[in-house]
Amino acid sequence: MQIVANIVVLTSLYALVASGYVLVYKVSRVLNLAHGELMILGAYLLVATSAGITSDPLIAIALTAVFSIIVGLSVYLLLMREMTGQPVLAAVLTTVALGILLRGAMVLIWGPQQLNVASMLSFENASVVLTDSIRVSTASLWLVICTVVVYLGLLAFLHMSRWGMRMRASGQNPLLAAQRGINLHTVYALAWTLSTFSGSIAGVLVALDSRLDVNMAVIGLKAFPAALVGGLDSLHGALIGAGVIAVLEVLLIHYVNPLLSDVVPFLVLIAILIVRPWGLFGTKEELNRV
């Protein structure tokens, strides 16, 4: 039964990260390949706040949330805003460049060694006994809870609030949305901010669960197939896609070969690209537009 718990935890992680890809893609048709790095940056921001500003874990996490919002906003305002209206190729390559820039900068600032974030915050990552045979760590439990909260929040926001409707409208047809008086720049900035925020939550929790180093940004790339399997513009699709990837990854590692861990999501990605590139719940017209 432990394997089921592992699947649920991994699903939550991939889903939480994938929501960031979906938000930005759904609204602005930009694929953010720097999402993994932005996610890890969230964890490093927690390191910075806990070391430099406050030692209280809760205040540090709250401050990290604020900082990650600032980061997301400035990524859009300073960089991606310049790329609005440019070809898709240019925007995607810009995010690749941003990713490698962040990766280098993070090592220069915080060093290449692994950091034990949990002990820095004196956060005790005890394993919680759910039943006799199932144990999960406290951070993993938080991860599952946060994913549920973030998804409920995002779905409610997108479908019930005014700004959510504006975001969906801008994604469907930017020209018409702008004609109806929706400020596209505000909407895009909002999407980048929310995406970085949810990514940072994932980064912080992953770092609390294990340790933190810059190579963990690869989780961001592994979560991308989840978003694609579900359909790049479908939020609930990302949740299901994350489930598919997590099930396959955990089972194949468990029964076939542990080395497969890094490659399974990408094999699924290739399969889905060949069979059904718009994903399980995505819109089919997408393909002609990109």
Binding site: T94, V96, I100, R103, P112
Partner: peptide, 13 residues
Amino acid sequence: SSASHAAFGLLMI
């Protein structure tokens, strides 16, 4: 090597 990562990112941008 990290400095050259950062430099590449910056130059590309």
